[in-house]
């Protein structure tokens, strides 16, 4: 059976079908929760941002035009929320401590993969908020450079360069930590 597209769901939501919001939530909740978690490093804040994202999708669905692609429209809402979060919390620099519990609850028995994941997240926490956002938009949300440039209000070329720089910085941080 063909899956109902995001565009159709948003159009239905616009017409008052609140059930469509539930379908969108099931579709995007894991992705968005991890996106927020990897950017903020804060479990509770990520849950709040997740709820706020769907509140906003509901609130602004009336302004959604079906001729637009739904995914970039939804991602923009999530991305704008992270900007608001950092503006409010004023924690735009590196995180003092990335909440490593986001990876695994058992600290004592980590295999190589889990250990590397922890190091990756730890290094990610040392990037500034914008770098974290851009990297996660790129590899986690798999946003195109056009979409990133739209969100960040920069040129497409600059989006490409910023992704590259952030990745190189992350690589360097990992090297410095001995990986």
């Amino acid at each position: 059976m063909t899956e109902i597209t995001d565009e159709i769901l948003l159009d239905r939501l616009k017409k008052g079908d609140v059930h469509s919001l539930g379908v969108l939530y099931e579709r995007y909740k894991t992705l968005f929760f991890n996106f927020f978690l990897r950017i903020t490093g804060d479990y509770d804040a990520s849950n709040d941002l997740l709820m706020e994202t769907f509140d906003r999708i509901y609130k602004y669905s009336s302004s959604y035009k079906p001729i637009k692609k739904a995914r970039p429209w939804i991602y923009q809402i999530a991305s704008n929320l992270t900007k608001d979060y950092f503006k409010k919390s004023k924690r735009t620099k590196a995180l003092e401590e990335m909440n490593l519990e986001i990876l695994d609850d058992n600290h004592e028995f980590l295999d190589d993969g889990e250990y590397r994941n922890r190091q990756l997240m730890s290094a990610m926490g040392q990037l500034n908020a914008r770098e974290r956002s851009i990297i996660n938009m790129y590899y986690l949300l798999e946003m195109s450079y056009e979409e990133i440039s739209g969100n960040e209000n920069i040129s497409v070329n600059n989006a490409r360069i910023l992704v590259c720089r952030a990745l190189k910085k992350l690589k360097k941080l990992l090297k410095n930590s001995g990986i």
Binding site: H19, K29, N47, L50, M51, F54, L103, L120, M121, L170
Partner: peptide, 25 residues
């Protein structure tokens, strides 16, 4: 590095958050 980042397992959303979403709906 990108491959490693993509391999980091995604954390599941807890059921109490799902419940909260249902309450909001």
């Amino acid at each position: 590095l990108l491959s490693d980042l993509k391999d980091i397992p995604l954390k599941k959303v807890e059921t109490n958050i799902d419940e909260e979403f249902k309450r909001r709906i």
